[in-house]
Design a protein around this nucleic acid. Structure first.
Length: 467
DNA sequence: GCATGATCATGC
DNA sequence: GCATGATCATGC
């Protein structure tokens, strides 16, 4: 039996050994046999780390990797933003959810908690053109969940558990929960699993920490935790007795039917209503968050806040837009790795205002994430779009309007073809274009005006009218 | 300079 | 009055 360069029975020894990785790549830290073996071994960073640095075979045990001391090893990519800030490149994927077993567990006895109670986190700087063995390791540290976060994570676990118990494992969504999500894993078609209380097979999913939550871990581990967050949850007692959702909804309640002017008067603030971040600031003021701060719990949970202005008949005045997609990206992606899918997996907070003549009055707030069946509808829109781009069939015809401008009519899925979403231009103007992977047959052009996916106003109206 | 959230304007 | 193509305006 070979001797390990660290003591399996000592957490300090393992962490100390791990910290030797700092500021180096695996190829610098491991024996030469790594380089030789890596030619045949195509494993990702995590597998290489376990095999050639910690010198054990990667496994999928329900026990933590260092079971003697209850420590689970996890590695994850980070990217750098301007000003040297690190952010997580993606969610941190923990263990796969065993749908059949989880229903006979509670949180304390769950495989999630047994395995991930105490994490040894290794963050490496991901660079597209480098090999995994050459990524530089930037952060190595132990992680325990703060008690307020843990309370939310327990509730999240409970939500996921409940849905599985009800035979709805196939309807799970990351947006069901706040910090701990059930994210899809293994995108290439297959990976369907049996679930309890339903014969429909469910997509494999894993417990994972939301990207926003991982950003907070990184900031706290690197000491870069700038004090620019305001909290909605003041104490452990608060979150033990209330959900984050109810805390938010209650704070908004008293402003029902009040005009934007009246709300500002009551809050004793005077915001620039024309400013682009007016609604974001008004929301912060209502929630009692300093304007220069971000809402900590929202950033951790990756909540997308959208302000909706309803007409008097409750139909939103506009559809909801998302960032423009790249034509030469979406055609190479699977639905579940696409940006649009990942947006629709998140939790939204809708803040509804309604026009009363010319004045906007606050109606209500609603936390929401897209139901499973609607996501299937959105998928159709995405698939049609990919197909149109792939075949170079974007432009259907060109007409001239009375100002003698050329108006291009496209084949992209329109509002009437789908109840959930559609595709429309979204750029500076029609000359704001992106490259096409296939030349458009009609225009013969290799570029086209930026477009994005939109949620239909009529669909948002339905969400407003529910409950 | 551009990405993004938000909004406008025309024609049916 | 809606559908759809087009564009605005702020902030990073």
């Amino acid at each position: 039996m070979k001797t390990l360069p660290y003591d399996l029975n000592s957490k300090e020894s393992i962490i100390k050994y791990a910290k030797n990785l700092l500021n180096k790549s695996l190829s610098e830290s491991c024996e030469k046999n790594l380089i030789e073996n890596s030619k045949t071994n195509k494993g990702g960073f995590g597998q290489l780390l376990e095999k050639f640095y910690f010198l054990y075979e990667p496994n999928s045990d329900s026990e933590p990797d260092f079971k003697e001391v209850g420590l689970e090893l996890k590695s994850s990519p980070i990217k750098k933003l301007k000003r040297l800030d690190y952010v997580s490149k993606e969610r941190l994927v923990l263990n796969i959810i065993n749908y059949l077993e989880i229903i006979s567990q509670d949180f304390e006895t769950s495989s999630f908690w047994k395995k991930n109670k105490n994490l040894l986190l290794i963050f490496y700087f991901y660079e597209k053109d480098k090999k995994a063995i050459d990524f530089k390791i930037e952060i190595v540290n132990e992680w325990n969940f703060p008690e307020i976060d843990l309370e939310i994570i327990k509730k999240d676990w409970q939500t996921i558990y409940q849905k599985i118990k009800e035979g709805k494992a196939h309807e799970l969504s990351e947006g069901d929960t706040l910090y701990l999500g059930a994210s899809t894993k293994g995108s290439k078609g297959g990976n369907l699993r049996d679930q309890p209380n339903n014969s429909i097979k469910a997509k494999q999913r894993a417990f994972s920490l939301k990207q926003g939550y991982v950003n907070h871990i990184i900031a706290s581990l690197t000491g870069n935790y700038k004090n620019n967050y305001g909290k909605l949850i003041p104490s452990l007692a608060t979150i033990k007795n209330n959900s984050l959702e109810s805390i938010v909804i209650n704070k908004f309640k008293k402003y029902h039917n009040k005009t934007i002017f009246e709300i500002q008067q009551e809050l004793n603030i005077n915001l620039n209503t024309k400013s682009k971040n007016f609604y974001a600031n008004l929301t912060k003021a209502i929630l009692g968050i300093e304007l220069e701060n971000q809402i900590e719990e929202f950033t951790k949970a990756d909540i997308i806040v959208k302000t909706i202005r309803l007409k008097e008949n409750n139909l939103p005045k506009e559809d909801i837009s998302f960032p423009a997609f790249k034509f030469d990206e979406i055609i190479y992606q699977e639905w579940e790795e696409s940006k649009f899918f990942n947006i629709l997996e998140q939790k939204f907070l809708f803040i509804f205002f309604k026009f009363d003549k010319d004045e906007l009055k606050f109606e209500k707030v609603k936390f929401w994430n897209m139901p499973y069946l609607d996501k299937l509808e959105a998928k159709k829109v995405w698939e049609q779009t990919v197909n149109i781009v792939k075949t170079g069939n974007i432009v259907k015809s060109i007409s001239i309007n009375k100002n003698k401008q050329k108006i291009r009519n496209t084949n992209f899925p329109n509002k009437n073809s789908n109840k959930v979403a559609h595709v429309r231009p979204h750029g500076l103007n029609k000359n704001d274009t992106l490259p096409l992977p296939v030349k458009d047959k009609f225009t013969k052009s290799a570029h086209y005006t930026k477009h994005c996916f939109w949620l239909n106003a009529s669909y948002i109206q339905k969400i407003f009218n529910e409950d």
